[in-house]
Computed example of a mutant assay.
Amino acid sequence: MARKQVAKALPAGWDVEITFATNGLEGIQAIRDGKGEMVFLDLTMPEMDGYQVLEAVKNEGLDAMIIVISGDIQPDAYTRVTKMGAMEFIQKPVSPEKLQEVLRKFGLI
Rank of each mutant, 00 (worst) to 15 (best):
P46Y: 10
E60G: 06
E26K: 11
V68I: 14
V6A: 03
D76V: 15
T19V: 10
V6M: 07
Q74L: 12
K8V: 03
E101K: 11
F106E: 04
E37F: 03
A2H: 08
K98W: 02
D42K: 06
L54C: 09
F40T: 01
M45K: 02
V39A: 08
K92I: 07
E97H: 10
I69D: 01
P75G: 11
M65E: 14
R3D: 05
K4C: 01
L99I: 12
K4P: 00
P46R: 03
A7K: 14
L62I: 12
K35N: 15
A77Y: 03
D63T: 14
S70T: 15
Q91G: 13
E47C: 04
L25E: 15
I73T: 15
L99W: 10
F89T: 07
R32P: 03
T79N: 14
K58Q: 15
P96Q: 07
M45E: 09
E101P: 03
G27A: 09
V57M: 10
Q100I: 08
Y51G: 02
M84A: 14
M1T: 08
L41E: 01
N23Q: 00
F40M: 13
V53N: 04
L25Y: 01
Y51S: 04
D76W: 08
R80T: 14
G34H: 07
L43C: 04
M87H: 12
M48K: 15
A7V: 12
M45L: 12
K98N: 06
T19C: 00
M48G: 05
Q74H: 14
K98H: 09
G61S: 06
A64L: 05
G34T: 11
R32I: 02
G71D: 11
K105P: 11
E47Q: 13
A77Q: 11
F89C: 06
M38P: 00
W14A: 08
R80D: 10
T22C: 06
V39F: 00
A2M: 12
G24S: 06
F20T: 09
E26P: 03
L62Y: 11
I31Q: 04
P96D: 07
K105I: 08
T44Y: 08
I90V: 15
Q91K: 13
E37D: 12
Q100H: 05
I109T: 12
L108Q: 13
